[in-house]
Design a protein around this nucleic acid. Sequence first.
DNA 1: CAACAACCTCAACTCGTGTTGAGGTCAAGA
DNA 2: TCTTGACCTCAACACGAGTTGAGGTTGTTG
Lengths: 136, 136
Amino acid sequence: MTSTDSTDLLDIGEVIEASGVKASTLHVWEKAGLIDVAQRNGLRRQYEPEVMTRIAVIVVAKRAGFSLDEIGDLFTPGIFDEGKTLLTSKLDELRQRRDELDAAINGLEHAIACPASSPFACEGFQSTLPDVLPVT
Amino acid sequence: MTSTDSTDLLDIGEVIEASGVKASTLHVWEKAGLIDVAQRNGLRRQYEPEVMTRIAVIVVAKRAGFSLDEIGDLFTPGIFDEGKTLLTSKLDELRQRRDELDAAINGLEHAIACPASSPFACEGFQSTLPDVLPVT
DNA sequence: CAACAACCTCAACTCGTGTTGAGGTCAAGA
DNA sequence: TCTTGACCTCAACACGAGTTGAGGTTGTTG
């Protein structure tokens, strides 16, 4: 029997190259419980190929504004199972954030199209300001 | 003559109450050049009413992911005038972020509707993962 | 006027995330 | 076997953004 049964595991170097995420960052994410190490070859970490999906999720979630702790919650089976309430409330947050983002985009589009000398002189921009105050 | 000519200026306390932003945060934003103090009453800051708009913009921009420095750029007249290139590139970033956010929302909606026990077991979720890798 | 409450400054601290660097281990190829 | 370079650990540092607290000032009200 050849050593083919570990052929599908990825060295950290491969993960780094394929993902663009640095080793130090992967270590941090691992310590935060976001990614698992399948096994070690000596000291060296070896990952299941699925780690790439995981990393993609983390990257997307971070851009969406999740903290590492919150991302960890998404990965916790119990939390996911129990009525998915956490996920649902996250979803609400995300929707709201998207709406705000949309408002910001519209505002900036107005401001760019406008001859005014600053966003504040552009009433199209002004009108897109949601009543975000008081900050909750 | 009464003191009516400063009647329209806001004490920091009023700003705090109306905006929900803490004094310490306002100080930080002021130091970063994001908000101006119209005048002082003794030591005490007094603001033009327009500061409320400014604060609303800052809050929205922060939620949209701008750093304080970037927000400062938006307020710099020269930068705004000069072809509005900065604003335009910010706008591109925002659009991309919104698209990612949309993808994340769709993914989570799939995951919630799905009987699978984790987002990774949900192929609707999987299919919404953009190719965010390698991270640029 | 006297006292108080609101405000001030400034430095030090917190928190989350990640990076850097020194020094050590080890798998694999020549 | 020897070497090499990829990888390891762990602590210290960096950075953005804000908070806290000690100690000081002062406008306002009784």
